[in-house]
Structures are given as C-alpha cells and as structure tokens.
Design a protein around this nucleic acid. Structure first.
Lengths: 187, 187
DNA sequence: TCGGGCATGTAATACGTTACATGATTCA
DNA sequence: TGAATCATGTAACGTATTACATGCCCGA
C-alpha cells in the first residue's frame, strides 16, 4: 500500500522545492527549462498534483485568481521534501532509450545519400544553435559560480550536461555528413 | 484514411529489410542491438505486425515451428520497402526528452554530496564499460569499412553515435564528481 | 525432471497526448 | 474585437508495460 510517486511527481516536487507555484506555473517550468530533460503537459501535471496532495507531499493555499475558479498556490510539505531528498540519490532505474534520428540512421543504407546529407545538415544546424545558446548561458553561470546547496547549482549542472550533449550530437552529425559525402564522390 | 505507420512499425520494417524474421526474432533484435536507440516488447511488436500486415507492408510464410502453432516468418514487401525508404529521409519530428539522471541533477542541490558522488561514480563506471565495448567494436568495423548501400553502414553509423554519446556522458559524470568533491572539501 | 530458449498470442493496467470546456484580464 | 496569457479542470484516445496463457524441444 506504499503510494509510489511517479518520476513526474518528483519533477513537480523539484519545482516546488524552488518556489511555490500554481499548476499552470509548474507546466510553464516543465516547458522551460526542465523540458530539455523531462516533459509533461498540464493535464498530466494536474492529475499528478492530486496524487501528491493525497499523499501529503504537497499542500495548497487558495488565492483569488483570474477565471471562475480560485487559483491554488501549491507548496512542498516537509514530508514531500524528505521524499524528494531520498529520491535524488537513488540510482536511476534503466530507462528505455528512444531516438528517431538514430533509428533512421540504422536504416539509412537504403536511402538516397544526398537527401540524407540535407537531413543531417538540418539536424547539425539545430544542435549548433542550441550549443551557442548554452555556451552563452554558461559564461553567465560560471561568473556567478553558484554554491552547492543553492538551486543555482542544479541549473549549472544540468546546463553542463546539455552543453556536452549538444557538442556530441553536432560532432556526430558532422561525421555523418562527411561519411555520406564520401559515398557520393568516390576517389 | 491514410494508414499511418508508427515509429515502431518502421523499426520493424528496418529489421525485416535486413533479414526475414519471426516476431520472436524481431523482439530479440529490438533488445540488441536496436535496444540502444529504440525499445519494444514482444506484445507491442506482435500488435504492430498485424497492422503492417493489414497495410500490406509485410507478409509472412508459415513454417512448422516449436509449440502448438506454426511459426510465421515475416518479410518486407516492395510497398513496405518503399515506405521505409521514404520515412528514412523525412526529418524526425521533435521528441520529448526524458532523462531521470538529469532530472535528479536538477534537484541535486538538496541532497547529500557524498552520496551523490557515489551515484555519479556508478553512472561513470557504466558509461566507461559501454564505451570500452563500443570502442572495441569500432576497431572491428573500421577495418571492414562497410560501404554505403550495405547494412553494415547502418551498424557503423549508429555505433559511431553511441561512441560519442558515451564519451559525452562519461565526461559529464567526471565533471559532476569533481564539482561535488569541491563542495566537500573547501580550500 | 526442471529450467531456459523458441514461439505464439491475449488482457489489464499505466502513462501520455490531444481535444474539449470555462472564463477573466490585458494588449494591440 | 480579437488574440494571448493566466488559470482551472474533464474526457477520449493512443501507446507501452506487465502479467498471463500455452506448449514444444533441448540440455543439465
């Protein structure tokens, strides 16, 4: 009868550990910046929030809000903070990887190389854009040098992951383009 | 009324484009080597195979097999091969990213650094193991230098992606361990 | 003889997305 | 006036996981 909290539940708790928020605001943070490593729609958050409420991991205060209903400002409870802390250091269980581009690559030998080059060039451009975005954010974060124990540490650490990820992706796309180009003009 | 094939459907077609297989064999390939970038259980494959059959993208020949029922050896049809070829060069639609370790990292500032170091050390070890595995496979593949137009090209290209991915992950884990260590012993 | 691999299939449940429904405020 | 943002919530659908059910053959 141990109420198991879903991963999304912990994502919500992680948001509330930083600041009290309405469901709508949580959804906003789920799009950005959390969207890079965890996604959820408002509907899903709403449902999960009810479960967290039932398990006393969050609570809310009502406030007059726009629209017909009151708005509910959620906050994390002491119990919720404890559950979140425990979860953080628990080794992540193996997740199913799903990457459409790599799956296409697996079957790429069947297709037209010139069209494939175009596809990878598009992908490369997107990764380079994101990389540039992350790199400028990195400069800003490095100056501040956020200490462990402050939310800024979480921001820096996840940004660092995004940074090396985009570098890896861009590198791979360039390699793919190079390989495919060679297959077009043999020496 | 255009029967849309799911991504898993194309994964199945990609397997059958390489060799005729039973559903059970497809499930095996879905675990390895495809499991690194696309996962599916037998149940799911079975259901999808029926849809591909209805859409004439695959066909099967019965053969006496173990167990009470005949075994069905599936193969890709000309129509299926055409659909697969078209799909390969279509730009992948943006997928939701979900990475539990990074989500934990986002909330890591709340937890105990020493325990976190342990968690990242475990992750690092796993990535290094996989990297070593991929690197030895790479040596073998580079020698053969598979040409475009052969399935070997798909193997090499996906392996290359795995290689740079594991390097990025290992690098990030080392950075995390370093950062967390600093927070333990301040100068 | 007992477990594991080969091989098929169904059913229940959980998870996630999309569409729907309501309605105030703000800004162009 | 009309779209965008803030804010709640429900319902339908589709996808994915887990458990179940059957049964042969092979090797320890």
């Amino acid at each position: 009868m141990t109420a198991t909290t879903s991963t999304l539940g912990f994502a919500i708790l992680a948001v509330l550990a930083r600041a009290d928020s309405t469901g709508y605001e949580i959804a906003g943070r789920m799009r950005h910046p959390i969207g890079r490593f965890w996604t959820a729609s408002y509907s899903q958050i709403h449902t999960d929030l009810q479960r967290l409420l039932a398990a006393d991991l969050v609570e809310y205060a009502t406030a007059p809000g726009p629209g017909p209903q009151d708005k509910k400002v959620y906050s994390i409870t002491a119990k919720g903070l404890g559950a979140l802390r425990d979860w953080v250091t628990q080794p992540p269980r193996p997740q199913p990887e799903r990457d459409e581009l790599v799956l296409k690559t697996y079957a790429a030998w069947l297709a037209d190389p010139a069209t494939l080059i175009e596809m990878f060039r598009t992908a490369l451009r997107q990764h380079e854009e994101r990389l540039a975005e992350y790199e400028s954010a990195w400069v800003a974060v490095e100056e501040r040098a956020p200490a462990f124990g402050t939310p800024g540490f979480g921001n820096m650490a996840t940004l660092r992951c995004g940074l090396t990820y985009e570098r890896h992706r861009a590198e791979w796309c360039r390699w793919m383009i190079d390989q495919l180009s060679r297959s077009l003009e043999p020496s």
